[in-house]
Design a protein around this nucleic acid. Structure first.
Lengths: 340, 340
DNA sequence: CACCTGCGTGAATCTATCG
DNA sequence: TCGATAGATTCACGCAGGT
């Protein structure tokens, strides 16, 4: 990480060691042994040594990240509270904590605790005031037109998606599902953005980034993981550009002033507007302002004043008569935009 | 808390201030203002001052808690990472983190983040080796006979359950649902246990404790909350003792040696046992040991040896012929126990 | 081809009691 | 404190093989 330049990446996804601190062997009720994470890379001397490790890589992450970038970190209860505290201490600003609810977690075989059925992700901007990418509309579309929530229900990585070694055994003990990265990259990056994964493993981040037309940088220490990651990503095909397109965010569409609709004749001056319930009316002035009995100004200002509300979206509040029906200004705006 | 004696309570449930750090007013799209948590008790100067506050009350909590007791703390992403780290630093041992997934969270009105649809609870024992109460069977029964998971789906506290002041406004901004406390108390305490809530608020913990036949101690600074909590708990009726009963945990039943069934004649010496699939058989000896072709010893040892497994529960592994059917030794043991 | 059964397995801080 | 032993304990899938 120390070799990467300052403020050079748009997003960081990090899946660091969890420091699981497992004890002896664990057996399933039928007698088979659980193949636990016992790799050297997950062993730390103490919580302090884990904290130091975390503080170090977070410092580099902060340096490398663009001011408009965000960082994602995934963990379990073993480590995520350390990570969250250190993120806050390093002035990162938590935007959400996301819960990955596993549909098929490993049960608690001894009946001693609740089934540990989730992992936690932290999503942070560089500071409280930072602007960041969040493709709100794409997330809403992905969730049946309801706001995407902070709890995501996804199966663990299994079956053909799980990368296997030559011996048929899993290549990495903690491979993440591609669906998880898909959602993260779709939510927080744009095509062409650069994504850094400092704990690359089998390269799930790289594979999904390639599929979605994002650029990526992966850092991995273990040669065996690097090897399978390379092969995996090479065999991943990017989506067509058309398939990669998502619902455009309204905030990203070119702005249209109401006055433009007036001068274009779509909503001629003199037109009488009313709200959806026909409680208030206002007439359109030549300069794109509107006037009711008591107020005049922008479509937003007048709408707010009449409702006695702090603000109002005039585009959805005001309507034009269309025969017996009413048509929102927003519909006319869309028509104007698509005619361009 | 400083006035309570050492090691005197069985469980602590704590719903501390979240240190929300909210900015200006937030309005819904239709113009109404969100009634946010703006109480003085939720304001802290800095993360450090919040940490100090948390460290102080956790130290008292640790002192007051019995060695076999557990502590629950609820929070959101604003504070829970601080709390989790300080719990670990104070040598508490995290048993689970539980996600309360809200069925009806407040949407993100600005479309700037994911809907913050959950809160997090930490459940900890006093240290790694501590024994603690977990009513595994009761939790499993509560979840349609599947292990209870670490994600709980519950609605927020609303409607008639929400305590109102004389003016009809909500008495407390962050009242928790009784269902949440119900599950916690049922999982981790026994009837008669003492539960401490150091941030009592409107007394949800006390009300549910009373309903479930647990004793309680509540600490609250604001006189207005104390008043409504008192009234609320007084009007709560305890369940009948019969209704309070839960599925007994096998680990708590009195032990019966297999030899006792042999000498009582329920399973006479000479009886031939077999497993559920009739793959193996063994015959009962006069001293309560059993013998197969190659092995002899306890019902557990022989079962394990035959299966080549590290261990085996002989009570459920071995069966006695009953006409055409088989009957597990466990059933005979239950019969013996209930005859006592 | 449909259906059933059996087997394998996943980031897991996974026991209690008695001598 | 240590060792031996009793005995309690699993859910959702994917896949292979058989009917």
């Amino acid at each position: 990480m120390t070799k990467l330049p300052d403020k050079s990446v748009d997003m960081i996804f990090a899946d660091p060691p969890y420091n699981l601190q497992l004890g002896g062997d664990l057996f399933r009720p039928e007698g088979s042994r659980v193949d636990a994470v016992d790799d050297e890379w997950d062993k730390f001397e103490s919580l302090t040594s884990y904290d130091n490790f975390t503080r170090d890589w977070l410092e580099q992450a902060r340096r490398i990240l663009k001011d408009s970038g965000t960082i994602w970190v995934i963990g379990s209860y073993h480590n995520i509270y350390r990570v969250g505290t250190l993120l806050q201490d390093a002035d990162f600003w938590i935007l959400n904590d996301i819960v990955w609810r596993k549909t098929n977690p490993m049960p608690n075989f001894r009946g001693t605790r609740f089934t540990n059925a989730h992992e936690t992700l932290l999503w942070c901007a560089k500071d409280e005031k930072a602007r960041y990418t969040f493709n709100y509309r794409a997330m809403k579309a992905l969730n049946d037109d309801l706001q995407m929530r902070s709890d995501w229900v996804l199966p663990i990585c299994a079956g053909s998606e799980r990368v296997k070694g030559e011996d048929g055994a899993k290549a990495h003990p903690t491979q993440k599902p591609e669906a998880l990265l898909y959602r993260i990259l779709l939510a927080c990056t744009k095509p062409g953005d650069v994504v850094l994964d400092p704990f690359f493993g089998t390269g799930t981040t790289g594979a999904v980034a390639r599929r979605l037309g994002r650029r990526w940088i992966g850092i991995e220490r273990e040669p065996s993981y690097v090897k399978v990651a390379r092969a995996r990503i090479e065999s991943t095909l990017p989506l067509d550009e058309s398939a990669m397109r998502t619902v455009p965010d309204k905030r990203e569409q070119p702005r249209v002033a109401f006055g433009v609709l007036v001068e274009s004749g779509l909503v001629p001056a003199g037109t009488v507007l009313c709200d959806a319930k026909r409680r208030w009316t206002a007439s359109v002035c030549a300069d794109g302002s509107i006037a009711s009995d008591a107020h005049s100004g922008s479509i937003h200002k007048v709408g707010a004043a009449l409702q006695n509300a702090p603000s109002c979206n005039g585009w959805t509040f005001w309507h034009v008569r269309d025969g017996r029906d009413l048509q929102a200004l927003d519909v006319l705006r869309q028509r104007y935009l698509s005619a361009l």
